[in-house]
Amino acid sequence: MLDALTIAICVAALALAAWCGYAAYRDQPTKDWHFIGMAVVSLLALVQLVVGIVQLAQGEEPGQGSTIFVAYLIGSFATVPAAGVLSLAERTRWGSATVAAGGVLLAVLEVRLIDIWGG
């Protein structure tokens, strides 16, 4: 695992969560700028997914098993896009709150990925 990439994803996800949480506080739905932020965070998660798969293909093993590691990689990649789709369905402040929750969830999943990889 690349620790710098994981930290960057955590910081970006928490920044997105704060940004969308502030929009929810102001009673605003997600806007185009929020979706650009979601795209950046999702791109970082995609890079981590690819790096994790490549490391597994090169023979490196996570401390707690490959299956759970891949499941967490896929889950962390899918978290923000799923929250974005749900926010499109709910065009109120709760759409922004959903994306904020997705950002916090992604940060938690990233911390768990570090734990899984290190054993």
Rank of each mutant, 00 (worst) to 15 (best):
V108W: 05
G119Q: 06
L44Q: 14
F35S: 15
P62W: 11
R112T: 15
V85W: 10
A71L: 13
I9G: 00
A100Q: 04
W117I: 11
F77G: 07
V50A: 15
V80F: 01
I68D: 14
G21D: 01
L105E: 02
G118K: 13
L44A: 13
S87C: 01
V99R: 01
G84S: 03
A100L: 05
W33V: 09
S87G: 07
E110K: 08
G65V: 11
I53G: 05
F35P: 04
F35Q: 10
M38D: 03
Q64A: 14
G102A: 11
I9H: 00
A8G: 09
A82M: 06
G21C: 10
R93N: 08
T92E: 01
G63L: 06
A97F: 12
L44Y: 13
S76N: 13
D32P: 00
I116S: 09
L2Y: 07
W117A: 08
V40G: 07
G118M: 11
A78P: 03
A8K: 13
P81V: 14
V99L: 03
V80Q: 01
G21L: 02
T30I: 08
L73M: 04
A82E: 05
V111K: 05
L113N: 00
A82R: 02
C20G: 04
A89I: 15
I9L: 04
L88S: 10
L86Y: 07
A83N: 07
F77E: 03
V104L: 15
I116G: 04
A23K: 07
R112S: 08
F69D: 01
D32F: 02
A45G: 09
S87L: 02
V108R: 01
L56W: 09
G75F: 05
T92F: 08
G95V: 00
I9A: 02
T92A: 09
A78L: 14
L49I: 15
Q48T: 13
L109S: 07
A107L: 06
W19E: 04
A100D: 09
T30N: 12
I9E: 03
Y25N: 13
V40T: 15
V51H: 14
T79K: 09
A8R: 10
A97W: 08
A89W: 12
Q48R: 14
L46S: 12
L2F: 04
L88T: 13
L86H: 06
V111Y: 10
A82W: 05
A100M: 15
A82T: 09
V108I: 12
V111N: 04
T30E: 05
V54F: 01
T30Y: 06
A13C: 10
S96R: 07
A45N: 10
V70P: 04
I74N: 01
R26I: 11
L5C: 06
E110C: 10
A97Y: 07
D115N: 06
T98V: 06
A4Q: 11
I36L: 04
T79F: 03
S42V: 03
L2W: 08
I7G: 02
H34K: 03
C10M: 12
I114C: 12
Y25D: 11
L106G: 03
A17Y: 02
